[in-house]
């Protein structure tokens, strides 16, 4: 499998990272270098092997249905680049 410039543009778009046209070639080359290298996993016979889903073998603990967080409006908005009246403010979203 090989990544072309169009694919790099597509995944950069999915990842919401602006990429200049003149960067595409180098990025494609880098990604292909890594992808070629990880291709070697193809050699491993994994038939009948379950994928690893967690690094700890314990049952998941759960929380009780209790409200334990009070109003944190100031704390959750204080680092925001743009906020007004307790809202986060972002460039217009069109639906």
């Amino acid at each position: 499998m090989s990544v072309d410039q169009k694919t790099v543009r597509h995944i950069a778009r999915l990842a919401r990272i602006a990429v200049r046209d003149d960067e595409l070639e180098a990025l494609a080359k880098e990604l292909n270098g890594i992808l070629d290298w990880v291709e070697q996993l193809g050699e491993v016979d994994t038939s009948g092997v379950e994928p690893m889903t967690s690094a700890v073998a314990v049952a998941m603990k759960m929380r009780d249905d209790v409200v334990a967080v009070q109003n944190l409006q100031a704390e959750v908005t204080r680092n925001a680049p743009n906020s007004e009246d307790g809202f986060y403010v972002v460039p217009k979203v069109v639906e």
Partner: peptide
């Protein structure tokens, strides 16, 4: 993503803001 904390680079719409900020 430039919404709740950290860096924001303004853009002409939300996607542009995301892409510029993260780049």
């Amino acid at each position: 993503d430039g919404v709740r904390y950290g860096l924001r680079v303004d853009g002409h719409d939300i996607t542009d803001m995301y892409e510029k900020t993260r780049a």
